[in-house]
Amino acid sequence: MTASGRGTQPTLTGRRVCLRPWRTDDADAVFAACQDPEIQRWTQVPVPYAAEHAREFVGAVAPRTWTDGGALFAVELLDGGPLVGSMGLSPPRDGVGEAGYWTAPGQRGRGLTGEALRVLSDWALDAVGVHRVELLVDPANTGSRRVAESAGFLAEGTIRQRFRFRGQPSDLVLYARLAVDRRS
């Protein structure tokens, strides 16, 4: 058992992707991916993104998230290759977990992040025991909205000025997938 009493973070697999715990040797790939203007535009990564941010993410943030009841995963292809992206579940509260993700440049548009999100949400709904997984997406982020919908999430509405992003009030579209939703 780990200090959290949860045991070791699992590796999850889909048809084409594998979600595994982050390792310290992933820091260079995270640093390279987070230089991407689209990741910096749509996520909460620090800007500018420095090498120490990547080392902190894989070496401290990811293990702490597991200890606190959530999980952060590196997404890879089952048959190997470069990092596809990051997939995470915040520590659940009241039976609800919030998912978040980014996709490395060069890996977008292939359906891999949608598959990884489905794998993560299946795990959260089945093994973690949440009854609801949520996503909060900027209304203008059409790529992320497509990912959510491809993974079986339904848009429930726009929450106006719900979030402060880089100092500015921002709208969010609330997506959710429930334990009672049909799975395919």
Rank of each mutant, 00 (worst) to 15 (best):
W123G: 04
Y49L: 12
L178A: 01
D138T: 00
F153P: 09
A99V: 04
V75P: 00
V75G: 00
A27V: 09
T24P: 08
F165T: 02
C34D: 04
P10W: 00
P169A: 08
W123Q: 08
R6Y: 14
R23M: 13
S86F: 00
T2W: 07
L120N: 02
E134I: 08
V119K: 10
Q161D: 13
R110S: 05
L112K: 00
A3Q: 11
F73Q: 05
S90D: 10
S121V: 03
C18P: 05
P169N: 05
G14Q: 09
S184F: 09
A140T: 12
S90W: 12
R177E: 05
A3L: 15
D26H: 14
L178V: 03
D28T: 07
G59Y: 04
T65Q: 12
W66I: 06
P92W: 12
L172K: 04
G85Q: 07
L120S: 04
R55A: 14
R146I: 02
G81L: 08
V130I: 09
T8K: 12
A151K: 06
D122T: 11
V128R: 15
E134D: 11
T65V: 14
R164K: 12
R145C: 10
P63G: 07
Q44S: 15
D26T: 04
D68C: 04
S184V: 14
T158P: 04
R23Y: 06
S90G: 09
R110G: 03
G59L: 05
V147P: 03
P91L: 11
E98I: 13
E56T: 15
H53A: 02
V58H: 00
F57I: 11
R183W: 09
L178C: 03
V61D: 10
V173F: 02
P139K: 11
P10D: 01
G152L: 11
V96H: 07
E52Y: 14
E56R: 14
S170V: 12
V45P: 12
A179W: 11
A116P: 11
G5P: 01
R183N: 09
R108K: 09
R108V: 08
G109C: 03
L154N: 10
L12R: 05
L136A: 14
G80M: 07
R23P: 04
W102Y: 06
T67A: 15
L77W: 07
T158G: 04
G5A: 05
A124G: 04
A27M: 11
G157T: 02
G5K: 06
E56P: 03
P21A: 13
V96G: 05
W42E: 00
F165A: 06
G114W: 01
L78H: 12
G109E: 03
Q161M: 10
A151S: 11
L154V: 15
Q168I: 03
D138H: 02
T13H: 13
L12E: 08
Y101S: 01
D36W: 01
L136P: 02
A124D: 00
T11Q: 10
A29M: 09
V180W: 14
S170I: 09
A60V: 15
S90I: 04
E149A: 12
W22S: 07
F153N: 07
R6I: 11
P21K: 05
G109I: 03
L178W: 04
R23D: 06
E149W: 00
L117D: 01
D28L: 09
D122H: 08
W123M: 07
G70F: 06
L19W: 01
V45F: 13
